[in-house]
Simulated assay, not measured.
Amino acid sequence: MEVHCDLEVDVNGQEVFMVDKKTLASFSGKFSKLFSSMTGRSKNLKVIFHDFPGGAEGFELISRFCYNNGKAEITPSNLVLLNCAARFMEMKNNGSRPSLIDQTVKSLEGISLWTWSELLVALRECQDLLPASSSLILEKVLDCVIGRLALPIAASPCTFSSENSSFQGSCDTRSSYSMRNNHSQASWWFEDFLFLNIDLIEKATMMMLSHNLDHATIRAPSLAKSYFLFSIRLQA
């Protein structure tokens, strides 16, 4: 198939991409609707995005998906970004083309096999890209994270993997180091949560209550919240 670079895309002022509008429109409902009213125009077009999820990195990932005929390498580190970018570009199943949204949701089914480190990366991506109030992916990631806290300390930071899993790995080094230094079960993960904002700390606390975690563990997010507020005061 002959490919033309007839579309210029400015992504959040970070980078400009030259792409084939037909290739991207075949997978993107947003582009498809935009170009359907421009039939007959042969001159090059330019689209400017000011709020594309993940900026240039996000657009590059969905472009690769389109140029690779609907295939993407989905990992714990890019799943959240791919899903956000796909939803923004309305990359749904239209019957004849693969849906990037569906593929990311399907990949989320393997979340129980992710390492502790991979869960934290995904949680940080959720915080940066998704609203704390309503997000299926955030709920699943946070639920899995909190679920790990309810496990025995020796198992919590380690990978849950199988030979057939694409998300194999090893125990998280920092958490293992914490265990070797005799951190208590209630707080071995404390430092790993310091990046959370207040909204996610409160959401994590509520989820801990729903998981019936012990009181010592549930009190730890309050300490993280206090540390977060203290850090803000220091920066002011």
Rank of each mutant, 00 (worst) to 15 (best):
8 E>R: 07
10 D>L: 15
10 D>P: 15
15 E>K: 11
19 V>S: 07
23 T>L: 14
23 T>D: 02
31 F>S: 00
38 M>S: 11
38 M>H: 08
40 G>T: 05
41 R>N: 12
50 H>M: 14
50 H>W: 13
51 D>E: 08
51 D>A: 08
53 P>T: 04
54 G>I: 00
58 G>N: 10
62 I>K: 00
65 F>R: 03
68 N>E: 13
73 E>V: 10
74 I>N: 04
77 S>P: 12
81 L>N: 07
84 C>D: 12
85 A>D: 03
98 P>R: 12
101 I>R: 01
103 Q>N: 11
110 G>V: 04
111 I>C: 03
115 T>I: 01
132 A>E: 02
133 S>T: 06
140 K>I: 12
145 V>M: 05
146 I>H: 01
155 A>M: 14
160 F>Y: 08
161 S>F: 12
168 Q>C: 06
172 D>T: 05
173 T>Q: 09
174 R>L: 15
178 S>C: 12
180 R>C: 15
182 N>V: 08
187 S>M: 08
189 W>L: 03
194 L>R: 14
196 L>W: 04
206 M>S: 11
207 M>A: 03
211 H>P: 11
212 N>Q: 10
215 H>C: 15
215 H>T: 15
221 P>H: 10
226 S>H: 13
227 Y>R: 11
228 F>P: 02
229 L>G: 05
230 F>H: 15
234 L>N: 10
